[in-house]
């Protein structure tokens, strides 16, 4: 099935993720909408607890119970995937959507050689014989930059360093030539020099294969290096979404602005960093109105009562009353 040229590869509409607990239902992701175009890298950035990883997990159908999708829909290539039975979702997950997680050890089975894991994944999703699959596996390993792939294919995960393991996981995600990769903090567990290598690799592969990537991270640096567009999440909502360059250099939402200012940069000789007071609210105590209002330096009355919905400001969508059509009131 070929999508019409203007149809996004992934369309998430009004997604809501809830956690029923004994002290009431927690809303971890609250009514968010975004899309990813074919071949595009969308960065999803936010601090811990913002709901970014849950959004990624919901898309690949690996939301851990008791978490559940309580509203909205996820369309992949025009087809709804948020309500598919486990088996059909599993087939889509291997073939159409690949996944890369923070800790490469959780994605690899320590008891099987990496070759066996790669070949199994390939033959499950592609009509190839074992020997053809092995050849493809070696090609993939070479492509993700593993030296002497013919020899290393028969080794076990523990024989690889952290950076090399993450390369294997990326090869595993690429096995069936997926159209989308969901990468959740793929570089967080790695050293800085290895981080740079993995980012460069992801960029190169996506360009060459035309794969779209949803890159979930807390690191603005990684976003700046890789993403075409970026969604900034705060307390389960998207605060701002737009072209990466635009959002990073000309942040509109006061939260994005504060976040960018709080990142120390080499060459900037400020004595003090811009500081956002307080911390992100726990899910049990999200304030009324705009969730950011108690920390916002530009807060006014409306922010404390009414929740802002995203509005378009140029190429950027921003959920903030400062940019409401009527302009600030009160």
């Amino acid at each position: 099935m070929v999508a019409p040229a203007n149809q996004p590869l992934l369309q998430v509409s009004n997604l809501r993720i809830e956690f029923p607990t004994r002290r009431g239902t927690l809303v971890a992701v609250d009514d968010i909408s975004f899309h990813i175009d074919p071949g595009e890298v969308l960065g999803v950035v936010g601090e811990s607890g913002a709901g970014k990883s849950l959004t990624g997990a919901a898309i690949i159908g690996l939301l851990e119970p008791p978490g559940r999708i309580a509203g909205g829909q996820i369309l992949f290539d025009g087809q709804r995937i948020d309500n598919l039975p486990y088996e059909s979702m599993r087939r889509i997950r291997g073939k159409q959507i690949g996944a890369v997680f923070q800790d490469p050890l959780t994605s690899l089975n320590p008891l099987y050689s990496i070759g066996r894991q790669l070949i199994e994944t390939i033959t499950t999703h592609l009509p190839l014989s074992d020997s053809e699959a092995r050849k493809r596996a070696i090609d993939l390993l070479a492509e993700v930059g593993i030296p002497s792939a013919e020899r290393r294919i028969d080794q076990y995960p523990h024989q690889f360093s952290g950076g090399m393991r993450q390369r294997v996981v990326i090869a595993l995600a690429l096995c069936a030539n997926p159209r989308l990769i969901v990468a959740d903090e793929p570089t967080t567990a790695l050293d800085v020099s290895i981080q740079a290598q993995i980012i460069a690799l992801l960029k190169k592969l996506c360009r060459e294969h035309g794969t779209a990537v949803m890159l979930v991270t807390h690191d603005m640096g990684v976003i700046a290096e890789t993403a075409d567009r970026v969604a900034v999440m705060y307390a389960g909502r998207i605060a701002e979404i737009g072209p990466a360059r635009q959002v990073i250099k000309h942040a509109l939402h006061p939260y994005t602005e504060g976040l960018m200012g709080s990142i120390p940069t080499v060459g900037a000789d400020a004595e003090r960093l811009v500081q956002i007071e307080g911390a992100m609210p726990r899910l049990t105590e999200i304030p009324a109105g705009c969730a950011y209002n108690p920390r916002c330096p530009k807060v006014f009355d409306r922010c404390r009562i009414e929740r802002p919905e995203p509005v378009a400001v140029g190429p950027t969508g921003v959920a903030c009353w400062l940019y409401a059509k009527e302009g600030p009131r009160g």
Binding site: S161, G163, M164, V192, S193, I194, Q195, A196, Q197, A200, D219, M220, G221, V222, A224, E225, R245, I248, K249, I263, T265, V266
Partner: peptide, 18 residues
């Protein structure tokens, strides 16, 4: 390896090895 947050388009050498 420092990310180019200012997006100046600084050219960087890919780092080799571990």
């Amino acid at each position: 390896t420092i990310p180019d947050l200012a997006m100046t388009g600084r050219q960087r050498q890919p780092v080799a090895g571990e």
